[in-house]
Design a protein around this nucleic acid. Structure first.
Lengths: 214, 214
DNA sequence: GTGTACCGGTACTCGGCCGTATCGGTACAC
DNA sequence: GTGTACCGATACGGCCGAGTACCGGTACAC
């Protein structure tokens, strides 16, 4: 049905009776995260993951003791930075680029965060895994971006808005579905950045010096 | 254990064998919303609500057909406006006041919204009830507040940041727990408003004209 | 070829909750 | 006092999922 990981029973990963390869593990992780996004954490079942990956529950329970540990492992493995490496030369450009990148982010990881948002309050390990996977890397990248802007003298180091930039960006990502029923796309986020983040930082471009070069 | 609605078995609400009074109904609603905040929507059980209100499951099922309908009814009944009626005379003052009011909001309703955030994607009736109870009234009050500011000439009617103010405020409310592990309090929100919302609207007070009067 | 380790399938126990049914009892109307 | 309607308690059937146990079979090392 879901067929997300079953793009062919005889893939090149050799037959299915061998030790679990890292690729196979990633299939498990992808499957459980996808199920979480779709059904929510509580409704995710080990049986469902096993079925969608054509493995047996035994296999999952051999690797991970419980469902929370399994999910935490999946989160940790999905850890990656999204808008790191962005460096357009100006803080405004960086922020716009980050917004654009976050547009893709929103469809998948915002959903994941929403689905896990409450389970996290009951399971510290899960909370830690979620923070490490989805939150901290982005925050760090953002702050690096801001620090570059400060170094360049584009914004004062003690600018009061600086500490709230992550909250603004992540906040609007998270709240858009509630307000307007849809996840934030790149266009919306860029407009948000231009209408609120840049002015808050005092980065509104002068009429004569538009940094949009397209 | 929870004892939230059991502050005395023989309260003035008379004995428990009579028709359900509106007060009694409110006990049910309060109990289920509280359980949702604590355990999440999926984990809420009709049995738990019945136990915590000392009623029987039958009583609940006599009034509401299913759990989603029960929860939706509870949401609709809890509908009220929080920072309507705020009118300090200036938009900056209004926004600060709204932030302060939202500080109280955050502890309870933000939690509720988080807990329901995913269930809502699967149940349109629940989604509608949630929006009507927690989102729309606040948005309306905010927009009224902004409209007054526009009328007073404090901000241009076509100011690009205007449409994003609700997203900024609700967003930071919703994202704070994820970023820093705690719900936003009134002080944080007021500082957020002063550092980001007011500058974005061009409402930063001039050095000589501080509107803080305390 | 032989052994070992591990996978996949199935069946199972156990617990929990939904929603229903039944029953005794109590408030309240008349 | 009598009747009615509804509450609260409890028990029940059904379903589902966590986690366990077992078993046949296959890959892989040697």
């Amino acid at each position: 049905m879901t067929s997300q990981a079953a793009d062919g029973p005889e893939t090149a990963t050799a037959s299915r009776r061998s030790k679990i390869t890292p690729e196979r593990e990633r299939e498990f992780f992808d499957a459980v995260l996808e199920q979480i996004r779709e059904c929510g954490y509580e409704s995710v079942t080990m049986e469902g993951v096993a079925a969608s990956t054509r493995c047996s529950k035994s296999t999952l329970y051999r690797q991970w003791k419980t469902k929370p540990q399994f999910v935490a492992a999946a989160l940790r493995a999905s850890r990656r930075v999204r808008f790191a490496g962005v460096d357009t030369g100006s803080l405004a450009g960086d922020l716009r680029e980050a917004a654009r990148a976050a547009g893709d982010w929103s469809g998948k990881d915002a959903r994941l965060m929403q689905a896990l948002g409450h389970a996290v309050t009951a399971d510290p390990e899960l909370a830690q895994a979620l923070r490490e996977a989805l939150v901290l890397p982005e925050i760090a990248a953002l702050q690096e971006m801001l620090a570059r802007g400060v170094e360049r003298g584009e914004v004062a180091a003690d600018h009061p808005a600086l500490e709230y930039i992550p909250a603004m960006l992540f906040g609007v990502l998270r709240v858009r579905p509630v307000l307007s029923g849809q996840y934030a796309d790149a266009d919306y986020l860029v407009r948000f950045v231009e209408a609120t983040v840049l002015p808050a930082l005092g980065l509104t471009q002068d009429p004569g010096r538009r940094s949009r070069d397209d």
